[in-house]
């Protein structure tokens, strides 16, 4: 791992038009996000549904146009490239999608699926059957799987096929959207271990998008937490998990049910529902649900402040072990 970033994202916004007739209205799915992914590291994007994490990943992969900002990959600006100019970039950056089986073309055999990147990029001079066998053995599947169809695979096997396809062209960056979604607990570990192992052996950088914090804790070097299309906190995974500074991060971490019946739950419950992107709250967008919210929070939006390796967008970052104030305290 080096500090040399392979991917640089600066102030990226993604807007979607809403409403039929008045097309001028737009909502911001991603509302200005900046981050780097360094060579060989695993970077995790965490957030709940509607936080914009998948939209951001698709924007990085060029599947979603951005309305503002810059994306630089291996020194080249890639935002706004057309399909043809983007094609060489796609050899260096591959993406895995949520549904392990649904992201595989149902009438293609495993052999055809894993060698599809070679055919798309017209890479000659390779024996595709040998390549299929090589890729399957890299992801730990028996080579006789080449003739199987996606519906004949279990979720874990289908996910391995997806991984094999993602590494086919020796990319420098893999974007994995919910790599453990739809997988049984006993299989999740297999897939994560495989990704980790490949990352080390092939020197890949990885960007993982997930809502599963337990997974992030084990695989990611750095983590960014998203809320309503913005980063509320980002930094080294161990630091963020060890002592969250943003109240939302703290609430997310405390909300994870743990498989221990004797554990006493000292939970930070979030009142109210997630606001609609159509009606973003003024000031700090988390203040409607924040147990620590102060009058200042609804007046002015916090700017992310850097403290060491960590950035936090909060007017009153939490001290380690902070507990939410009780009703009377916050009223006072």
């Amino acid at each position: 791992m080096s500090d040399d970033p392979i991917l640089t994202v600066r102030d990226v916004q993604v807007s979607f038009p809403v409403g039929g007739l008045r097309k001028r209205d737009a909502i911001l799915g991603v509302a200005g996000v900046s981050f780097d992914v360094r060579r060989g590291e695993t970077f995790a994007l965490v957030g709940e549904s509607g936080s914009g994490k998948t939209t951001l990943a698709r924007a990085v992969n060029g599947l979603q146009a951005i309305s503002n900002g810059e994306i630089t990959f291996e020194g080249q600006r890639i935002d706004g490239l057309d399909r043809k100019s983007m094609k060489p970039v796609r050899k260096r950056m591959s993406m895995m999608f949520q549904d392990p089986v649904g992201s595989l073309s149902p009438r293609m055999t495993v052999g055809d699926l894993v060698t599809e990147p070679f055919r798309i990029h017209g890479i000659e001079g390779r024996n595709l059957r040998d390549e299929a066998a090589r890729l399957l053995s890299l992801v730990g599947l028996p080579t006789d799987f080449v003739s199987r169809f996606p519906h004949q695979l279990s979720g874990g096997q289908a996910r391995r096929v997806g991984v094999a396809r993602a590494i086919a062209l020796d990319p420098a960056l893999i974007i994995a959207d919910e790599p453990t979604a739809g997988l049984d607990v006993s299989v999740q570990g297999e897939v994560l271990n495989l990704l980790n192992d490949l990352r080390e052996r092939l020197g890949l950088a990885m960007m993982i998008i997930t809502h599963n914090l337990h997974v992030v804790h084990h695989v990611a070097d750095r983590t960014a937490v998203m809320y309503l299309g913005r980063f509320v906190e980002a930094g080294d995974t161990e630091e963020v998990f060890g002592a969250p500074r943003h109240p939302y991060t703290a609430a997310l971490l405390s909300a994870n049910p743990e498989p221990d019946p004797d554990k006493t739950h000292d939970r930070i419950t979030l009142p109210a529902e997630v606001p609609s992107l159509l009606a973003r709250p003024p000031g700090c967008e988390f203040h409607t649900r924040c147990p620590w919210a102060q009058p200042a929070c609804s007046a002015k939006a916090p700017t992310p402040t850097q403290e060491g390796t960590r950035a936090v967008a909060c007017h009153f970052p939490l001290e380690p072990g902070a507990r939410p104030p009780t009703q009377s305290e916050s009223a006072a």
Binding site: N61, G62, L63, R83, M86, K87, R90, K91, S94, M95, F97, Q98, D99, G102, S103, L104, S105, P106, M108, E116, P117, I120, H121, R165
Partner: peptide, 19 residues
């Protein structure tokens, strides 16, 4: 998802439709 996956691999529309 599998069509989006093909797009993300760089397949052109003709190939996506055919394959």
């Amino acid at each position: 998802e599998y069509v989006t996956a093909a797009q993300s691999m760089g397949a052109n529309p003709a190939r996506i439709l055919r394959v």
